[in-house]
Simulated assay, not measured.
Amino acid sequence: MECTCDYILKTQPDWEEHYENCKVKWIAREKRDYPKNNDGTLRLRNKHLLKLDYDVLYHLGLDTKTHDLQAMFGDVKFVCMGGTKYRMKETAKHMANILDIQCDFKNIVKQGHRYALYKVGPVLCLSHGMGVPSMTIALEEILKLLHYAKAKDPIILRLGTSGGIGVTPGAVVISSSALNDTLEMCYKLAILGEEKKFPCNFDKRLNQELLSVADSEDFETHLGVTLCANDFYRGEARTDGAFCDYTEADKQTYLQKLLQLGVKNMEMEATAFAHFTSAAGVRAADVCVTLLDRLLGDQVTPEKEVLTEWQKRPAKIVGNYILKYYNK
């Protein structure tokens, strides 16, 4: 069987030979059709969409009737996603600078009144809000957009903030896998009143490549498990919310358990992000900076200038990676 990897970096000793969405690995692992066409474009995963006269990407304010999505987005190779509109605009500015691309930084989806989307040549920078529900709405519509645009072999990278577990504040964590709020390595979703569970691993080869380009930066970068919570306060074992049903000792016992499970950070999107991208056959990585060590406290206390600098770190790693691809 022919390998379908479009390698970004040359294989190094101990690296995975193939990406997880390579046809060689996919056919050996999955019990469903390969999710990409021969030219690297994404297959439509939902056959019900074929019955529509046109598809409305409602939350992005785009549709397949009045917008030529292939003309607008057909050259897209990378999608960078993150929580806030401000951070993703700054990410777009960083990509424009390192790729030397002129950009007006216009919010393409302003008419949707929910998200912000900036296009810098072949790179999209999209805000997705906070938490799984907001993120998955944006992600599902972006996946459909990439299909309609006939984008070839797209890569989606989430650039986030998180709470660290036993790592230096300001360090970056690249997620190897994700645990849900009951410490299972799966994404849970109730469909038609019945709970379904889906795997949520990330691409090992892509993570290895990202770690290699992170070596040139002057901050720590770790590979580790990410806990995905459904709530910022009690869901992440904080004691500083409006409600708290446990003691400080209870919290510390739980955090130590996470540490033993290999968890290096916690945020609110990783399980769903891993599942949706892998199910679509899209390579993806979750790259988050840590704003504090949760073993030592609950509140984010560094000065604004420090936090602003830290929040640029995922974009630096991802930018280095994208630059490697275009220099190649």
Results as ranks from 00 to 15, higher is better:
Phe202Gln: 01
Ser176Gln: 13
His222Lys: 12
Ser175Phe: 08
Glu248Ser: 11
Lys204His: 12
Leu206Phe: 00
Ser176Lys: 14
Leu223Lys: 11
Leu192Phe: 15
Lys197Gly: 02
Thr247Val: 07
Tyr233His: 11
Glu209Asn: 03
Leu183Asn: 11
Ala214Asn: 00
Ile191Ala: 08
Lys196Gln: 15
Glu195Gln: 15
Cys200Met: 04
Glu248Pro: 08
His222Pro: 02
Ala242Met: 08
Leu183Val: 10
Gly224His: 05
Cys200Asn: 09
Val213Ala: 04
Ser212Trp: 06
Ser177Trp: 13
Thr221Cys: 10
Thr247Trp: 00
Leu223Cys: 13
Phe219Ile: 02
Glu236Thr: 11
Ala229Pro: 06
Arg238Ala: 01
Lys196Phe: 13
Arg238Asp: 00
Ser176Met: 07
His222Gln: 10
Ala178Glu: 04
Thr221Gly: 07
Pro199Gly: 01
Thr239Asp: 14
Thr182Val: 12
Pro199Phe: 08
Asn230Leu: 14
Leu183Gln: 09
Leu206Gly: 05
Pro199Gln: 02
Gln208Pro: 02
Leu183Gly: 11
Ala237Gln: 15
Glu209Lys: 09
Asp203Ser: 03
Ser216Ala: 12
Leu183Asp: 02
Gln208Ser: 03
Asn207Glu: 06
Asn180Phe: 03
Thr182Leu: 12
Asp231Val: 07
Leu189Asp: 09
Arg234Asn: 15
Cys228Tyr: 00
Ala229Arg: 11
Thr182Ser: 13
Asp181Ile: 01
Arg238Ile: 00
Ser175Cys: 07
Asn180Asp: 13
Ala242Pro: 03
Ser177Leu: 15
Ile174Ala: 02
Val213Ile: 10
Glu195His: 08
Thr226Lys: 05
Ala178Trp: 03
Gly193Tyr: 02
Thr247Tyr: 01
Lys188Ser: 09
Phe219Glu: 06
Asp215His: 14
Thr239Ala: 14
Ala242Thr: 06
Val225Glu: 04
Ser216His: 12
Leu189Pro: 02
